[in-house]
Write a protein that binds this DNA or RNA. Structure first.
Length: 474
RNA sequence: GCCCCCUUCGUCCAGUGGCCUAGGACGCCGGCCUUUCACGCCGGUAACACGGGUUCGAAUCCCGUAGGGGGUGCCA
């Protein structure tokens, strides 16, 4: 068997859809697994959307995912002459004909004939002359069956009676994607067409054109299960978060995204889900792709992303997180940010976040001059309801005054010592960490306190403790 | 309406006639660890849509039913 040639053929809609990304990935996995060729073809037959902006919106996310291609991008709009030639040939051969009926007229005719809505070859013998508004329709066979030998779906039969005389050239003379598909797949010697199940219905039409054009053996088809939302509906631009770029912005790692996408409609035989891309390439086969639609579950993506983040080495993590740390939305001025401090804290942050954009909240206390806003719940729990919070702060301030501040362990001993002493005094457990944490970080949840205090240093820590003590009053 | 496709835990995947009293992962619940939040570890919950066949034997094969989805454009 020759090395396969596959193609990813997105329409330039202005962004890359998660579903398209999954299709691209499966094409890519198959090509790489088989040592084949990946062709990229932009299907811009409709309007002229071939602006650099629209094209980049597709290509950039692909590159981000690590999906590369060996040929292209080709543009269908550049190949319009070939498509037109094919249309002319079909007309000349009597396999297609012109039609000047509008959509309304077609509907009226089917209603009049008491048939379900559709086109029933009304213009087959009308000898319509070419001209503006005149389309070309393929003369679909009245009898027989087209069989699609789909790698994932098996044998799919479509009776020719159910295929209407579909349009292959629009009223303005531009060819439709059906004819462009047949012509391009043929001329680009595509051996495997791997795409979403939503295109299964068009396959018989393209195969009919393929045959009418005398192209011989059609490519092998593989229709992937659809990606759906919680309501089990096809992922849609309007309702669902489908733009890959949004996931990029939120701080999902490409490795995690690609790993998660690979797990929708396919699974490795050994059941190891999180693994390097190369292993997925090695294990991937089209035959193992399943047939049923898959819900794109953000929870699973989150878990996978969290795993990849935890596995990052601190330097790399710091690098990746920098854009979020210095963004305008960050709780401190970009100039106050210090990467080496974050790197020191990296492992602590890494085990607490699901995506990179969450990183700043874990160090929101770090690069600001003082705590301006205490989390209300935290303050209430630790200071107001907390036992002897005022005493704890007083004594910790006193204890820390003498502390050398160079070692988390010493700080821990000092703060915990206060808690233990007060516990004895009041004969009830007094937690010293909570009030100190809230005073220093403004929140009851966070990275290990002793480390935080060490990083902050003596002056800032004492200042914050005193500020909180004053705020507490009493 | 018509055409096409699909149907294993809530979700994703494994399972291709006996290894299945159905396995893994996410989620959820419980526990351990812990003077924060997490991480980690341990345990639990939970499914072969239904009905008929075929077979010594069916989640796996066949038929039917039901449910879900996709398509039905001079979009792709």
């Amino acid at each position: 068997m020759n090395a396969p040639r596959v193609r990813f053929a997105p329409a330039p809609t202005g962004f890359l859809h998660v579903g398209s990304a999954r299709s691209a990935l499966f094409n890519w996995l198959y090509a790489r697994h088989m040592g084949g060729t990946m062709v990229l073809r932009v299907e811009d037959t409709d309007v002229s959307k071939k602006t650099q902006e629209f094209v980049d919106a597709i290509l950039e996310p692909l590159q981000w995912l690590g999906i590369d291609w060996d040929e292209g991008p080709y543009f269908q709009s550049d190949r319009i002459d070939s498509h037109k030639a094919a249309v002319d040939r079909l007309v000349a051969d009597g396999r297609a004909y012109r039609c000047d009926l509008t959509r309304d007229q077609v509907e009226a005719l089917s209603a009049e004939a008491k048939l379900s809505p559709g086109y029933y070859g009304w213009s087959r013998d009308r000898e319509v002359a070419p001209g503006p508004g005149v389309v070309v329709r393929f003369r679909a066979p009245d009898h027989g069956t087209t069989v699609i030998d789909d790698v994932v779906r098996g044998r799919v039969e479509v009776a020719h009676e159910t295929i209407e005389d579909f349009v292959i050239s629009r009223g303005d003379g531009s060819p439709t994607f059906l004819i462009a598909n047949a012509v391009d797949d043929h001329e680009m010697a595509i051996s495997h067409v791997i795409r979403g199940e939503d295109l299964l219905n068009t396959t018989a039409k393209v195969m009919l054109l393929w045959d009418a054009l005398g192209y011989g053996e059609p490519p092998t088809y593989a229709h992937l299960p659809l990606l759906v939302n919680e309501q089990r509906k096809k992922l849609s631009k309007r309702r669902d978060d489908v733009a890959l770029s949004d996931y990029v912005a939120k701080g999902y790692l490409p490795e995690a995204m690609v790993n998660a996408l690979a797990l929708l409609g396919w699974g490795p035989p050994d059941e190891v889900e999180i693994r390097p891309l190369q292993e997925i390439v090695d294990l991937f086969t089209l035959e193992a792709v399943n047939k049923s639609a898959a819900f794109f579950d953000i929870k699973k993506l989150n878990h996978i992303n969290a795993e990849y983040i935890k596995a990052l080495d601190p330097a790399r993590f710091t690098e990746l997180v920098e854009p979020y740390m210095t963004a305008d939305e960050a709780p401190w001025p970009a100039a106050a940010y210090r990467a080496e401090v974050v790197e020191a804290l990296a492992p602590e942050i890494q085990q607490r976040i699901v995506n990179l954009s969450e990183a700043p909240t874990w160090v929101s206390w770090l690069f600001v001059p003082a705590i301006e806003h205490y989390d209300e719940k935290s303050w209430n729990k630790a200071m107001v309801k907390g036992r002897a919070a005022g005493r704890v702060l007083d004594e910790v301030i006193a204890a820390l005054d003498d502390d050398p501040f160079d070692d988390p362990a010493t700080i821990e001993t000092a703060v915990m010592g206060v808690g233990n002493r007060l516990s004895e005094e009041f004969e009830v457990r007094v937690m010293s960490q909570a009030p100190v944490r809230v005073a220093v970080t403004g929140h009851s949840a966070g990275i290990p306190l002793w480390q935080a205090i060490t990083l902050l240093g003596r002056e800032a820590t004492l200042e914050r403790l005193r500020a909180a003590r004053a705020r507490l009053g009493g």
